[in-house]
Write a protein that binds this DNA or RNA. Structure first.
Lengths: 246, 246
DNA sequence: GAGTGGTCTAGACCACATT
DNA sequence: ATGTGGTCTAGACCACTCC
């Protein structure tokens, strides 16, 4: 019963040392090599044995504390949290989520065009009201089931959108390929009844509850690059979060 | 137009230096002294001028990056993000949320008793199925409007619950006063139709959409201390999140 | 008192973006 | 070439918990 997994470091790798350590601890936790509730060795010993400085070792542990996998307590030690470790909400699109889950997502582009921004969109994207923006509407399926109806708006000039790319790769992957990196996003999660149009698209009845999410995403430079309104079928989708006291 | 706010350090204070710096930057950002999009001075200069080491200065900036208020870009600099800075989902109860928002929350205890844990509760709290746990049901109001119906379950022996405390202070404050600190929580947000009982309590119609949240909270020691199922009226409540690419 | 995590220093070298 | 953030070292002292 080890207070640590077997850890190998590659000092010639471009991957930061703290990240290599964190990765191997994470794997050991997820695989059960270190069980929930187990205490891991103290920072000083770990650093010494791995030939690292203590700040570097601390940084490795901190990344897992931030993920909610480890809990530190001063004067006591560091241990693996109890309970299932679920994936938390991350800065990815639903498309990524589903792909990673091994399911088969499919996207149908309902339209892709330029149109004048409504008041809310203009404010979120920091453009003038009525200014032209990309307007994208998509319907996402898992298998044959419609899962989500997604309306997204992007400033013109930032990127050239292509229907084929979007069907195949999802919006965020398309942005990444254009060199746009999302760094911060703000989301609001709520719920409401489906409109007739939404119900038709999603194969629900009019007035059925839908889980809704509004998101504004910002790039490297702090500029808004995307605003979206999404509606999910609540039987098929929910949001998982891990919150950590800092 | 400063690349930094006026910062004063108190080295005799028990408050960490990096936190003092972060606090004053945050205030400058929220008050508009540093505008969205403004670049702040580089880490090295800031550290030198404040008489801090660079790692300490970095730690200060990092806490604001984690909050989604600053964006760092290698080779370029650090700037304030655009857009409104909303409060993100934090490790607090709804009661805290409402109090801070200056509204007047009121809580009605529907029941507080010991009862056998159902399957899901037992699993989340890591007790045997059918074992006795605290069972707490509350109805929360803002003004005269019912806002949320909350069912919570806690292991027995951890804390003695008192109805008066709960009405007045909320569950999390009561736990804090008992020396229990929540460190990690896992939440699942979804939505569904109200049952007849829920609709009656919340002043909605049967079948109305409700925003739901399940949460399991863990303490210092990684032990589950609380499992709850909450239902919110979607016209009155939503979840705001800020996601940051790490 | 012993052991643990929390904070802090004063540097160093590297990777990346811009000019 | 210059300036920026990203990583890392080898220590130091303190605060807290537990025995």
């Amino acid at each position: 019963m080890p207070g640590r997994p077997a850890i190998t470091l590659d000092r010639s790798s471009p991957i930061p040392l703290y990240f290599q350590v964190a990765e191997q601890f994470e794997e050991a936790i997820l695989s059960g090599t270190i069980a929930p509730g187990d205490r891991i060795d103290n920072e000083v010993d770990l650093a010494r044995d791995l030939g690292l400085s203590r700040p570097t070792m601390r940084q490795a542990i901190q990344t897992l504390v931030d993920k909610g996998m480890l809990v530190r307590k001063r004067g006591v030690g560091t241990q693996v949290v109890h309970g299932k470790v679920r994936r938390s909400v991350e800065l990815t699109s639903l498309y990524d989520d589903l792909t990673r889950a091994g399911q088969e997502p499919r996207t149908e582009i309902l339209h892709l065009r330029r149109s004048p921004a409504d008041e809310e969109t203009a404010q979120e994207l920091q453009v003038a009201e009525g200014a032209e923006v990309w307007s994208l509407e998509r319907l996402r399926f898992v298998g044959d089931e419609p899962l989500a109806l997604m309306c997204n708006y992007l400033p013109i000039g930032l990127v050239d959108l292509d229907g084929a790319d979007l069907e195949h790769d999802g919006l965020y992957a398309t942005l990444r390929r254009s060199g746009i990196l999302i760094r911060v996003a703000r989301q609001r999660i709520g719920c409401r009844r489906a409109t007739t149009a939404e119900a038709t698209r999603l194969g629900e009845r009019r007035g059925s509850p839908l889980l809704t999410m509004q998101r504004t995403a910002y790039d490297d430079a702090g500029q808004a690059v995307e605003f979206g309104r999404h509606a999910y079928r609540p039987e098929l989708y929910s949001f998982d979060l891990t919150l950590v006291e800092r």
